[in-house]
Design a protein around this nucleic acid. Structure first.
Lengths: 197, 197
DNA sequence: TTTCAATTCGACCGAGTGGTCCAAAATTGA
DNA sequence: TCAATTTTGGACCACTCGGTCGAATTGAAA
């Protein structure tokens, strides 16, 4: 039941925005009365917090998978660039802007995400003996920054320069993967929450 | 009166988010009754659209000033990194996600912004005889992407890696503002990325 | 001072909000 | 079967929402 409510909350947030994420609307989407929401979560804020934690944990897991891939940097890129994540992420960022509890939660997870990515990049580069000009942290920051902008712009219908950007990133990947590696496929994942954005 | 209402709307949006940007709250902040909003703007959506247009036009002017500066790239960076703009921008982006009129408006302006920046960067580089490894468009995209991430993270209280990022951008500026006479012009940001560093 | 448009106000509408209380069911596990 | 857990239904509270209507008020020009 909690799962069903979180699913409904996520759908509403994604489709109609946080302004429409009322207890009654979410309950209705889950096919349930609004009292049940209070029964399970106590309040609207707890519901939304639980939703964010779930999404963030899912994102964390995907990053973990990326870490274990033999092309971790490319895998991170794929995870972070997922449009499904960005829609929810944008709503939650806006929500966090005016909700201290959500903001604190996001900040905590964001640090985790970064640490995870940095560790993956470090390990990968060390394994291959590549000495980067940019620190792993900068690779993580730039990757996330670029991915978010591309996804956000795509939502707006803007694609100018995107091909060039993708090509640039692709070229970077080629370098990162330069020491003979095998083919690996990273499945596209949906619903990822990049560090809030 | 319209100006006063737009100011109030901007303040509410900034401080409490688009979910709280109700006609009554905005009117109250402006010290008038809510009916006046309908009198002047016809509807809530028109008010918000007018607000966005005003903000976007202001941003456009700032970019124009940056264009005329003798350090246009640095000036663009300063404009784009302004936290004040980002707070409002985030709300409006979230709003646009569920409002076609706002989304269309944003898309239109976003293209203008990009074109302006690209033109400024192109002109600057041409004036100095610098042949960039990265196209002006990519400089614009990367600059904006990085600036947004830094500002958003700062709001969350995250500053890990920000110093390094600023230093990197600073180094790029140093290059862009140099005379392009030597043969090895590798902008730090670009070079690092494309060399896989 | 009159006239007329611009502006403001009070009252109202139907609907939705988060949240609570309680009694009646339905479901479950032992 | 019995008891505990889960879920619903209904009513309620005080409040806010976007929006409308018509009457009252202003202010400036004639």
């Amino acid at each position: 039941m909690r799962v069903k409510l979180l699913d409904a909350a996520e759908a509403v947030l994604r489709e109609e925005g946080y302004a429409a994420a009322s207890v009654r609307r979410i309950a209705n989407k889950a096919g349930i009365t609004h009292q049940a929401v209070f029964y399970y979560f106590g309040s609207q804020e707890e519901l939304l917090l639980a939703l964010y934690r779930r999404s963030a944990d899912q994102h964390l897991e995907r990053l973990q998978d990326a870490l274990n891939s033999d092309r971790p940097i490319r895998a991170i890129w794929d995870v972070v660039r997922d449009p499904g994540a960005t829609g929810l992420g944008l709503e939650i960022m806006a929500l966090a802007n005016h909700n201290d509890a959500v903001r604190a939660e996001i900040a905590e997870y964001a640090e985790k995400f970064r640490a995870l990515e940095v560790a993956a990049i470090e390990k990968h580069l060390a394994d291959r003996g590549i000495t980067p000009r940019l620190s792993p942290q900068m690779v993580s920051i730039l990757t996330n920054a670029l991915a978010r902008l591309l996804v956000q712009e795509s939502v707006l219908g803007i694609t100018t320069g995107h091909e060039e950007a993708e090509a640039l990133v692709e070229a970077s990947f080629a370098h990162f993967e330069s020491r003979g590696e095998s083919e690996s496929h990273v499945e596209p994942v949906v619903g990822a929450l990049s560090e809030g954005g």
